[in-house]
C-alpha cells in the first residue's frame, strides 16, 4: 500500500516542485534590464504604431546604445522618456516615485490656448453656481442661454443634480457646454452628460482591442452606442466649446456629441488621446501607462490627433481686453439666431 501511496503522491510533489520554481521576474534595477522591459511592453501592447507610422525597432536601435549599466535613475528615466515621446501620445506616461512623471505634451504646440480664466471669472462665472471646484453652471444673456463649464471628467455629476441643472435651463433657447482645458477623466462621467442630448439609442463610434502581441493584431471594430438618459433630456440646440486641451475622455465626449443632430462643436481642434490606456510596470517598480485600444469615431476614423470643430473660432486679444470670451460670444450669437 505504501508503494501505491508513493505512486500517487509523486506527481503531486513534482508539480509542487516545478511550480515552486517560477520566480524569474524579480526586483531588478539594471538599466539595461529595465530598458529592455519597457521596450518590450510597448512593443507588445501599444496600439498606434501603424497609424502613426512609428518604426519601434528603429527607435530601439537609436536609444539602446545610450543605456549604460552605471547610469543614474535620472539619466535612465530621461532616455526612456525621450524614447516614449517618439510615440507622440499624451496617454504614454512613465512614472517613477524617485524621479517623476514623463508626459508628452507636444500635441499642444502650435495651437492657441483659446482659454482665459480671468475673463471667464469676471464675466461668465461671476454669477455661476459651483457644483464643485470644476463644474459651474449658470444662465447667461438675460437667462436666454444655459451655460455649463465642465473642467474635468474626473469629477462626476449625479443624475439628480444634472436633472436640477437642466430644469433651471428649461426656458433657455440653447445650452453651451464649455469643456475647454478639460484634460479628460472617466468616460462614464462624460457619457452621463452626453446621454442628456438624444432621445434614441445612437451609434457614436467604435472600439478595437489588441488580440495579440503583433503590431497589427486587432479585433474588428465593435460599435459603441450612446443611450438616452432616463432623466431630463435636452433636445434643443447645444454648442460644445472646445480647445486643444480637450483630451482623452473629453476628446471622446466631443466625438460622440458631434454625431448628435442638435449639437455644434465650436472653438479649436481637440487634443486627441483616443487610445484607451492600460498600465504595466518595470522590474525596478516604475509604472508605465500606454494606449492599447483605439476608440474610433462614427466613421471608423482615428481621433488620436484631435477632432476638428464644426465652427473654428479663436479667442481674440480685443475681446480679452473687453472681458469677453470670443468663443462664448460666438456661441451665444449662433444660439440666439
Amino acid at each position: 500500500m505504501t508503494r501505491y501511496i508513493a505512486y500517487i503522491m509523486c506527481p503531486a510533489l513534482l508539480c509542487l516542485y516545478l511550480t515552486g520554481c517560477d520566480f524569474e521576474d524579480e526586483y531588478n534595477v539594471s538599466p539595461r534590464r529595465n530598458f529592455e522591459s519597457l521596450w518590450k511592453i510597448i512593443d507588445e501592447n501599444y496600439c498606434f504604431f501603424e497609424y502613426k507610422n512609428v518604426n519601434w525597432d528603429n527607435i530601439y536601435s537609436r536609444y539602446s546604445p545610450e543605456i549604460e549599466e552605471q547610469m543614474s535613475d535620472y539619466d535612465l528615466f530621461r532616455i526612456m522618456s525621450d524614447m516614449l515621446d517618439e510615440l507622440q501620445d499624451g496617454h504614454v506616461n512613465l512614472l517613477s516615485s524617485n524621479v517623476g512623471i514623463s508626459s508628452y505634451d507636444g500635441w499642444l504646440n502650435g495651437y492657441p490656448s483659446n482659454f482665459n480664466t480671468e475673463v471667464l471669472r469676471n464675466t461668465y462665472w461671476s454669477r455661476s453656481q459651483n457644483y464643485n471646484d470644476i463644474v459651474k453652471h449658470n444662465r447667461i444673456v438675460d437667462n436666454q442661454i444655459g451655460y455649463i463649464y465642465y473642467g474635468s471628467f474626473k469629477e462626476s455629476i449625479l443624475e439628480k443634480d444634472l436633472d436640477n441643472i437642466f430644469s433651471t435651463f428649461s426656458y433657455c433657447k440653447g445650452i453651451i457646454i464649455d469643456v475647454r482645458d478639460n484634460g479628460g477623466g472617466s468616460i462614464t462621467n462624460s457619457d452621463r452628460l452626453a446621454s442628456r442630448f438624444l432621445n434614441e439609442k445612437t451609434l457614436c463610434g467604435y472600439i478595437r482591442h489588441k488580440t495579440g502581441k503583433g503590431h497589427d493584431d486587432f479585433s474588428d471594430p465593435y460599435p459603441i452606442y450612446l443611450t438616452p438618459s432616463h432623466g431630463y433630456l435636452w433636445l434643443k440646440p447645444v454648442i460644445v466649446i472646445t480647445n486643444r486641451k480637450c483630451y482623452s475622455a473629453t476628446n471622446n465626449f466631443v466625438s460622440k456629441m458631434k454625431v448628435l443632430p442638435s449639437v455644434t462643436i465650436l472653438g479649436g481642434r481637440t487634443g486627441g488621446g483616443s487610445g484607451f490606456p492600460f498600465t504595466s510596470e518595470l522590474p525596478n517598480g516604475w509604472s508605465i501607462r500606454f494606449s492599447t485600444s483605439p476608440i474610433l469615431d462614427v466613421d471608423k476614423q482615428h481621433t488620436e490627433f484631435g477632432i476638428e470643430p464644426d465652427i473654428e473660432v479663436d479667442l481674440t486679444d480685443e475681446d480679452i481686453k473687453e472681458n469677453k470670451d470670443t468663443l462664448i460670444e460666438e456661441a451665444v450669437r449662433i444660439l440666439l439666431n
Binding site: N45, I207, H209, T211, S219, Y222, F276, F278, T292, S293
Partner: peptide
Amino acid sequence: PPYGISYYEMFNEGN
C-alpha cells in the same frame, strides 16, 4: 478575456 480587451469594452460597451 481576449489579450488586450479592457473591462470598459466588455462591461460598459457589452463586447
